[in-house]
Design a protein around this nucleic acid. Sequence first.
DNA 1: TTTTTTAAGTTTCAATTAAGGTTGGTAAAG
DNA 2: CTTTACCAACCTTAATTGAAACTTAAAAAA
Lengths: 225, 225
Amino acid sequence: MKILIIEDEKLLADSVKRLLERKGFDVDCVYDGKTGEEYAELGIYDLLILDVMMPEMDGYSVARKVREKHCNTPILMLTAKSELEDRITGLNAGADYYLTKPFDTGELLACVNALLRRQGGQVDEMIFGNTGLDLSTGILSCNDRTIRLSEKEFDMMRFLLQSGEKNLSKETLLIKIWGYESNATENNVEVYIGFLRKKLAAIGSNIRIESIRRLGYHLEVNEEC
Amino acid sequence: MKILIIEDEKLLADSVKRLLERKGFDVDCVYDGKTGEEYAELGIYDLLILDVMMPEMDGYSVARKVREKHCNTPILMLTAKSELEDRITGLNAGADYYLTKPFDTGELLACVNALLRRQGGQVDEMIFGNTGLDLSTGILSCNDRTIRLSEKEFDMMRFLLQSGEKNLSKETLLIKIWGYESNATENNVEVYIGFLRKKLAAIGSNIRIESIRRLGYHLEVNEEC
DNA sequence: TTTTTTAAGTTTCAATTAAGGTTGGTAAAG
DNA sequence: CTTTACCAACCTTAATTGAAACTTAAAAAA
C-alpha cells in the first residue's frame, strides 16, 4: 500500500513516515502543496495524508485540485486548525477524514487503516496454494486463468477451502451442502468432487482434492520440485 | 441514497432523520442495536449512522457484526464519548468516521457527504470499461454513441456500476430499486436486466452484465485480443 | 407518448440420476 | 509368499429433467 504525505514541517512528516513504514506501508513525502498535487495526480497512491497549512498552496486547494482531476484517492487531512468551519471546509473540499494535531499515533493508524480498508477491502477472496475463490461471484482463479463455479460447486469449494488440509467426510459435505432433508446420495458428492477437480485442472491450479478411503476429502498443495 | 440511523435516543434520531430527509436522503430509523444489525445486513443502505451507547447491544458490537457478515456499508459513529481510546476502538471495529456529540449539523452533513461520495454519491459520472453513466442526465455513453436510460434503468445501472465486479443478488436489486413494500417480482429485475443489455449493445459498450444462476448479476469488461 | 408491469412462452444449464469402470484392500487358494 | 478372486469404495460419463433465466409482447400506468 502506497501512501503520500504532503506536509511542510519536515520533522513531523518524517516521523509519520517512519511510523507508517514500521507498519509495512510504502511511504513518500513531499514538502509543499504544488509538488504534492503533482505527485498525487499520478494516481499511484492508495492514500494521501495532507496538511492544511502550507506555504504557496494550502491543503484545501490541493484536495480540490486533485478531485477536479477525477483522482479519488482517499485523503486524510491533518492539521492544527480545530475550528468547526475548517473541518467542514476540509470535508467539502474532498477530504475523507479530518484529524486534529496534536494527534495520537494509535488514532492515526486506526484512521489510515479505516481509509485503506475501503480501498482494498471490497473483494473478499479465499486463497489456498496458488488459487483463489471470489466469494461474491463464485469465480475460481489461478494466475490469470479463471473459471466460474455453479452454486453447488461453489458451496463445496468453500467448505474445502475452509477446512484446508483438515479432512471432511462425505456425510458432512452432504449435510452442509444439500441439507438434512435432502435425498441426495453420497454419489452426488462424488460427482461434484469430480467437477471441481476438472475445473481446478482447467485453470492450472496447484491444489488437489485428495480422497482417503472411508474418511473423506481434503485439500493439498502440489509441491513442484 | 438510503441511510439507516441506529440510535436509542428517539428524539435525536428523529431530528437527524428530518435533517437528512430535507437534503433529499431516504432515511430509516431503528432504536436498538439488535434490530439495527438486522436491518444493516440487508445490504440495501448506502450509509449507517450508529450510536455507541445503546442498551442490549452497543455500537461497536453492531459494527463488528455487520463487518463480519462481509457487509461493508460505510459507518458513521455518533457518540457522546470523546475519549481517544473510544475513537480508536470505533475505527478498528469497522467504523469509517467518528463524530462526537454534540455535533454541528453542518459538520454532520459534510461527513455524510464525504462518506457517500465514496459510494458514488457526489460524482457526476460513473465509469466502467469504455462506458460512462452521466448521473445528472441518466445518459449512458460509449465513445461518441449515447443512449438515454429511463428512471428504473438508470437506478439499476447505477447499482451495477457501483458494485462493479461484485455480485448483486436479484433480491438486493429488487429491494434497492423497487423498495420493500413493492409487489414487484424477480421477473421485473430480469426484464430490466434485458433492457440494459440491449442498450449496452446498442452503444457498442464493452461491458457485459453477467448472470450467475441463483447468485445474481455483476459486470464484466470484455477482453479483446 | 414513454415507461413500467404483467404474463406467457422459450431456452438454457445446473443438478440429478444411473450405469459402468477403476482402484485398493482382503482373504482364500496355490 | 505369491497369486487369484472378490467386494466395496470411489470415480467417470452421459442422459434426463426441472427450475431459473431470458424474451417477447401486450396491457396498464404515468
